[in-house]
Each structure stands twice: as structure tokens, then as C-alpha cells.
């Protein structure tokens, strides 16, 4: 099992701990990854709005890089996954568009996207290619007693026509993972809602309120931590949590884990190895108790 790892920007920037956890988890699971150092940003929807064709060409370039290596792509960011799949599906459904993208790509970089590469998020690889039952076999530290709130993030769920999630209105892969590592999933109304990160710049109050509502929802459902496959959700809920607490005038103290972190913890990683001290919200008492047990 080998994949071309598409890191996305956050794992190389404000969320480098995501990278540490990914490398740790992949290694222990026996999934080989090769970092795509020549891939660009996916555009995150922003370049798509600025210049739709250029954005699709950027992603087509990334796809062609993986095709050159003969590897499928593993993403570790829900937003990258959604944006890249959207570009792919658009080209699949509209061959004329694909041709137009390829013409430009060829002209400017000498490349061509064939349409062969698969783009999958880490969670899809674990679920579909690797198998949760195989993951369970490698768990060395059952996270028993830890109540984990899944937070899906928009891009892997919606719009449905661009989502690979089987029943996108009732996804369950996070719940399944949480159960697989011995923790307890908690259910709450906000788990499929938006974290608000995309409007942090234009409307900070709304962005923080959305994350705040989600975390309060998780808190009320009894969650000790949140886990998310999207580092942008993580950034909004983690880095801004002190401001959210101030805005809502209540303590939250909710660690927000990246998807691979939860796996890595179950595979025996210690908190330092995962650089969890770089989170703004540090592991809380419950998490420490479970990990140090």
C-alpha cells in the first residue's frame, strides 16, 4: 500500500503537528507514503472563485504529478479532499472542460492529466483500502472511557454530487473509527455543520459563533475531545477557542484532535511525539488520564 501524500498547506504551516501524526500513524499501520513536494495548494475554493479554470488546472497538475509516480493520492485535509474531488468530478462529467484544462496545462507546464489517479482522504484509505478491522488489530492503547465528538467538516459531505461519502446526510466513518480505537462516539446536532473557518476574515463573529455552537453542542453531549478530518476546522476551533470562550462567556476547554492523531494515540504514540503541546488547547485532564493510563 503506497500513496502520494498531498499534505495541503496547513500541515506544512499552522498545523505541522498534523504531519507528525500522519507520518506516525501511516508508518505503524504499514501504509507507505511519499510526500508530494512539488504539488501546489488546491486553491481551497478561493482560487476557484478568482479564476476557475486556473484553479482546475492547478489541481490537474497535482493529479498528473501523482500519475507520473503511478500512485494514488492521499489527502489529510477535508477541504483539500473536497476541492480536489470537485475538480476531478467536474472534468469527469464534462470532457470538453477536461480538454480545455489539459490544453492550458500542457501549454504552461508540459503536463497532462489522464484521469486515472484516485484522490482519497486518509479516512477513506483506512476504511476502504486498509480496513478498520486491520487497524483494530494494531491498537496497543485502547482509548476506553474517552468520549469523542466527531466533527465532519463540510467539504467531504457537501454538495452531495461532489461527495464520496456513501450516505452524506448520515456519515458514520468517524463514529466507526472512534469505536475502533476503543473510545465512545457522542452524538450531537452540530457534527455535520460548518465550523465557519472560511469566513474568518470577512465575518469573524459569525465564524467564531459557528465553531462555538459546535463545541457547546459537543460539550453538552458529554464529549471530552473533538476529532475532525479537516485541519481548517481544527484551526478555527482550536486556535480561536480562547476568543470563542470570551465571546460566549463560558469555559469550553475542548481539545480538537486531527483524524490521524486519534489513530496515532491508539497505536501508542505519546503526546510529545505528536507535538500535541503545539495545540492552543492542550490535552485536558480526561485525555491525559486515558493516554497515561
Amino acid at each position: 500500500m503506497k500513496y502520494a501524500l498531498y499534505t495541503g498547506c496547513v500541515a506544512k504551516g499552522a498545523g505541522r503537528e498534523l504531519m507528525s501524526a500522519t507520518v506516525y500513524a501511516a508508518e505503524r499501520l504499514g501504509i507507505q507514503i511519499r510526500e508530494m513536494k512539488d504539488a501546489s495548494c488546491c486553491g481551497a475554493g478561493a482560487i476557484q472563485e478568482d479564476n476557475p479554470l486556473l484553479a482546475d488546472a492547478l489541481n490537474a497538475r497535482t493529479f498528473s504529478l501523482a500519475e507520473e509516480q503511478g500512485l494514488d493520492i492521499m489527502t489529510i485535509c477535508g477541504t483539500c479532499q473536497g476541492v480536489m474531488r470537485t475538480a476531478q468530478i467536474k472534468m469527469e462529467h464534462n470532457p470538453a472542460h477536461k480538454e480545455r484544462v489539459n490544453a492550458a496545462l500542457k501549454r504552461d507546464s508540459g503536463r497532462e492529466y489522464q484521469g486515472k489517479v484516485k484522490v482519497k482522504h486518509f479516512y477513506q484509505i483506512v476504511e476502504e483500502d486498509y480496513g478498520l478491522e486491520n487497524l483494530v488489530k494494531r491498537v496497543t492503547r485502547k482509548l476506553t472511557g474517552l468520549k469523542v465528538a466527531p466533527f465532519y467538516g463540510c467539504y467531504v459531505l457537501r454538495p452531495h454530487e461532489y461527495s464520496d461519502t456513501k450516505v452524506p446526510d448520515r456519515p458514520d466513518y468517524l463514529e466507526k473509527l472512534i469505536a475502533a480505537v476503543g473510545a465512545t462516539p457522542v452524538d450531537y446536532a452540530e457534527k455535520q455543520k460548518c465550523c465557519g473557518f472560511p469566513i474568518l476574515m470577512p465575518n469573524k463573529a459569525n465564524a467564531l459563533q459557528l465553531s462555538g455552537n459546535a463545541m457547546i453542542g459537543a460539550l453538552k453531549a458529554g464529549a471530552d475531545v473533538i476529532v475532525t478530518p479537516c485541519p481548517l476546522c481544527h484551526l478555527n476551533m482550536d486556535s480561536y477557542q480562547p476568543e470563542i470562550e470570551e465571546m460566549l462567556d463560558r469555559k469550553i476547554n475542548m481539545p480538537v484532535l486531527h483524524y490521524p492523531q486519534l489513530i496515532a494515540l491508539a497505536l501508542g504514540a505519546n503526546l510529545d511525539e505528536l507535538k500535541m503541546n503545539t495545540h492552543v488547547v492542550l490535552p485536558n485532564e480526561k485525555l491525559l488520564e486515558v493516554v497515561n493510563r
Partner: peptide
């Protein structure tokens, strides 16, 4: 947690730069 001060430059950035130089053509 702050991103590195020096911006990260990808390998083969020239290809991407060439695309952005034709920004208006893409539009």
C-alpha cells in the same frame, strides 16, 4: 504553532508560476 516565517516554496514552482503569469488568459 505559528507558520514558518519564510514562505514555503514548492519544488518545480516554475510550472505554477508560468500558469499564474497567464492569469488573464485563463479567465
Amino acid at each position: 504553532k505559528n507558520p514558518p516565517i519564510l514562505p514555503h516554496i514548492i519544488d518545480k514552482f516554475g510550472e505554477v508560476r508560468a500558469m499564474f503569469r497567464r492569469f488573464n488568459d485563463y479567465r
